[in-house]
């Protein structure tokens, strides 16, 4: 039995969580261990992650992999990017002006006011074709792709 399952059952036994909450937690653990299904977490082991961009379909995650002296594996759901971009359209105009100004000062002249909801899906789909490969001088190799 995994450590997480033991902890959940221990919390249930101690009365810290209800049976329903324990079931929800156990379901979350089980779904994390299974193959990715729409809306459920993908495997957590970096060795199970894709090694390159997917050839077809809408990408689900953005992967950042660093190999060399440092080992970095980061997986970010693209739904987070989608939700973030949609949120920008609801930011009050005064706040958005300040954000745009600050980003402009930092060298990123992106006007989020021009970002339309229909553009967001196109951006996400186009990310499938994106792949960044950086060979750093310190020997690290950085790869960023979506799959």
């Amino acid at each position: 039995m995994s450590e997480e399952r033991t902890r959940i059952l221990g919390m249930l036994a101690e009365g810290k969580i209800t049976a329903t909450e324990a079931e929800t937690l156990l379901d979350a653990l089980a779904s994390a261990a299974e193959a990715p299904v729409a809306g459920t977490p993908a495997p957590t082991s970096a060795s199970d992650w894709p090694t390159g961009p997917s050839a077809s379909g809408t990408p689900k995650f953005m992967y950042v992999k660093v190999t060399g002296k440092d080992q970095v594996d980061v997986k970010v759901p693209l739904a987070l990017l989608r939700a973030g971009l949609k949120l920008t359209s609801l930011i009050p105009p005064q706040a958005m002006d300040q954000i745009n100004e600050s980003m402009g000062e930092a060298g990123m002249s992106i006007d989020f006011n021009n970002l339309k909801p229909e553009d967001i899906e196109e951006i996400i789909t186009s990310l499938r074709e994106m792949e960044v490969n950086v060979q750093a001088s310190d020997g690290n190799n950085v790869r960023v792709f979506c799959a």
Partner: peptide, 26 residues
């Protein structure tokens, strides 16, 4: 649209699920 902004912020929090980061340096 402050109420919508609040709901979308909560949605953003929900979409954090599935994030994994593993950093192994010396």
């Amino acid at each position: 649209h402050y109420s919508l902004l609040l709901l979308k912020s909560l949605h953003l929090l929900a979409e954090v699920r599935g994030t994994h980061a593993h950093i192994n340096s010396p």
